[in-house]
C-alpha cells in the first residue's frame, strides 16, 4: 500500500480523517486548557499572597 492510497482510505478519506481530526483536536484542547489554567492560577495566587503579605507588613 502506498501513501496516497492510505490517505484516500478507499474513497472514505474525508470521513475517516475528519473523525480522527476531531478526536485529536478535542482531546488536545482538553489537555491544553487545564495546563493554561494552571499557569494563570499560579500567577494569580502568587499575586494574591504578595498583596496579603504587603498588607500585613504595612499594618
Amino acid at each position: 500500500m502506498n501513501w496516497s492510497e492510505f490517505w484516500n482510505m478507499g474513497g472514505y478519506g474525508f470521513y475517516v480523517w475528519f473523525s480522527y481530526g476531531t478526536f485529536f483536536l478535542v482531546l488536545g484542547l482538553g489537555l491544553i486548557m487545564p495546563m493554561l489554567k494552571r499557569r494563570s492560577l499560579e500567577t494569580e495566587l502568587r499575586e494574591q499572597w504578595a498583596v496579603t503579605k504587603r498588607r500585613k507588613r504595612e499594618s
Binding site: 482510505m9 472514505y12 475517516v16 473523525s19 480522527y20 478526536f23
Partner: peptide, 23 residues
Amino acid sequence: MFKAPPDYQQGESYRIIFIHVPS
C-alpha cells in the same frame, strides 16, 4: 490503520471504529 484488513462490507470507512467505540 496498517495491520487490520478493510471490512468486507464497509471497506476502509470502518476504521473510524477505533476512535468512535472507545469514545
